[in-house]
Structure formats: structure tokens, C-alpha cells
Design a protein around this nucleic acid. Structure first.
Lengths: 158, 158
DNA sequence: GCCATATTGTATGTTGCTGTATAATATGCC
DNA sequence: GGCATATTATACAGCAACATACAATATGGC
């Protein structure tokens, strides 16, 4: 009985095939981003939030949660941690006393520049050997795939 | 100052663009699978394990972990829960007293058939409006993307 | 056979996310 | 204005993954 290598990455088993490829790629992407952001003491989620704040200025926690597709409870904890590290600040809203306006601190702005630079580098590495046309085709197919998946989730009995 | 909708799915912001699309698609896929498997009381991870056991018979926990790309500690807990529900069984290995041979129970075999049927249905829904050529192109690009990402992770200072 | 090293599964603690419940506050109808 | 409803953020419990450390057992050099 020979030892068969069953966990080869790129010639996947007959079931859950395409799906596995896509999800493994997504996982690899998250890991690559996480390891690139690690020297800044950030993971992808935190870095994305910082980039978002950089772009859209002071903004509500709920907006942050929606953008990152996280729950409000979770985003609150994330902001707590960034706030402890002096990367973001919470300012009370001028008119709505329930909400915080979350903004980058000066230190956070510095870090945001590094985040964007790292993103740029990694994106260019990812593009290696992949043409613009291929990337556009990829995006097009994935958009349709995503639409199909949303319908599929909606059609579930639950 | 007009309210701008910033969380639109399909016209993404300039930073973290392609990445976001891919990772959101992966997330949508996991959610779709999870909601389809929910009536069986399973999530995608558990269903994948069951399908794997169905295909490859009694097998070691470490093999399961490698296949699903999970840690050994985690897979042990997963198997614990499936075992409590009488879906899988742990048999001692004939020659190596450290290892368990994990196998589907009769009940687990019944469930495996349902898992594969659900997978088949969802896969066909996902293919809707996407040609075979497009799917192959998608796989090809993602394979290269994944290779780039592995190189990128390896090239991290950490 | 004996000992160093590797491997398997488990225990334990941490992280990141979820869902539900709750308090404070806004909003809209009357 | 007063009250039902919605919305914002937080508190808390739970889950699934991770990393690390460990005990039991195998394996291989000698």
C-alpha cells in the first residue's frame, strides 16, 4: 500500500473543487497581507480600517462595520485596541450623542501611508504573470459568481 | 453634505480592490455552503470532513487536518463533536498505538450522501451564466495568483 | 537493546468574529 | 410635547480557528 499524497494543492479532489481553489486563494491572500502588515503590528482587518479612515475621514463605527462587513460589537473592540495604541481617536458627534466619530490620530496617519505603500507593493507582486485582460475577466466572472451565491443564500430554507 | 453610499459591493474603492472582490466572493461562498448545510446541522468545514471521509475511508486525524488545512488541535475538537453526534467513529490503529483511524458511522454515511447532493446542487447554481471556458480561465488565473501569494508570504521579513 | 529525534493526538490559552440583549439616544407619528 | 419605534454603541457569551506545550508512542542510528 503506497503512501498517496492527498493534500496536493493544485490538483484538487473531485468534490468541492473550484470552491476549494477560490477559498484557498482567498486564504493565501489574507495570509500574505497579514504577514506583510505584521511588522506594523497590524493584521489585514486593522490595516483595512486604517486605510478606510484615511480615505473617508472621521466616520461612524457603524459605517466602519458595514464597510468591513463586520458586526458592530466586533468593530468596537477593534477600535478599542487601535485607540489604546494611539492610532485612532474617538470624537463625540456634534449632533448625535450616541455616536462616535472615529478618526486617525497623527500617528495613525503616518501608519496609513505605510499601509498603502505595502498594499501597492503586494498588489504588484500579485499581478505578476497575469495580464490586465485576465484580471478584468477574473473580476467579471467573480462578480457573476458572487451574484449567484447571494441568490443561493437567499434561496435557503432557513 | 449628501449621504454617500460607501459600502456598495460591486464598485469598490481604489485601494484593496481586486482583493476585496475575491475575498468577498470567498466569504459569500462559505456563507452559501453554511446555510445549505445548516439543515443537516453542519457547517462547511464539518461537511467537507464528512465528504473526505466518505471518499477516503478510515484515516488519521493528521491527514484530516492536512486536507482541510487546519491544525491538529482543531481537527481533534471537530471530530469530538461529530463523534458525540454519532456521525464518525474513532478506531484504534492496528499497528500505531498513538493514532486514531477516523471513519464514518452508518449514520455518517447517510449524511455524506446528502452532503454530496447539496454540494452538487449548489455548484450548479454557482455555474449559472458562467461558461466552462470562463471557469477554466478563472481557475488558471487563480492558480497563478495563489503561486504569487505563496511567494509573497515567503518573502516576508518575519 | 538504547537513546535521540520525530510524530500523533490532546490540553490550554488567545484571537477574531458572531449573535443576542441592553442602555442611551434619535426620530417620527399623533 | 409625549410615546412607540429605530438606531448606535457596548456587554457578554459562544464558536472556530490558531500557537504552544506536552504525554505517549514510533523510528532510526549505533
Amino acid at each position: 500500500m503506497k503512501e498517496v499524497e492527498t493534500t496536493h494543492e493544485l490538483d484538487a479532489p473531485p468534490w468541492l473543487r473550484v470552491e476549494t481553489t477560490l477559498m484557498n486563494t482567498a486564504r493565501a491572500m489574507r495570509e500574505a497581507y497579514d504577514s506583510r502588515f505584521a511588522p506594523l503590528g497590524l493584521n489585514l482587518t486593522q490595516a483595512s480600517l486604517i486605510a478606510y479612515l484615511q480615505q473617508f475621514g472621521p466616520i461612524t463605527q457603524t459605517k466602519c462595520a458595514d464597510h468591513l462587513r463586520l458586526g458592530r460589537a466586533n468593530i468596537g473592540a477593534i477600535i478599542d485596541r487601535l485607540q489604546e495604541r494611539q492610532l485612532v481617536e474617538r470624537h463625540p458627534d456634534a449632533v448625535d450623542r450616541r455616536v462616535w466619530q472615529v478618526a486617525l490620530s497623527p500617528l495613525g496617519h503616518q501608519l496609513a501611508a505605510e499601509v498603502l505603500a505595502i498594499d501597492e507593493v503586494l498588489r504588484s507582486e500579485m499581478r505578476d504573470g497575469i495580464t490586465r485582460a485576465e484580471r478584468q475577466a477574473l473580476a467579471s466572472v467573480m462578480t457573476r459568481l458572487q451574484a449567484n451565491l447571494l441568490r443561493a443564500s437567499a434561496n435557503t430554507v432557513g
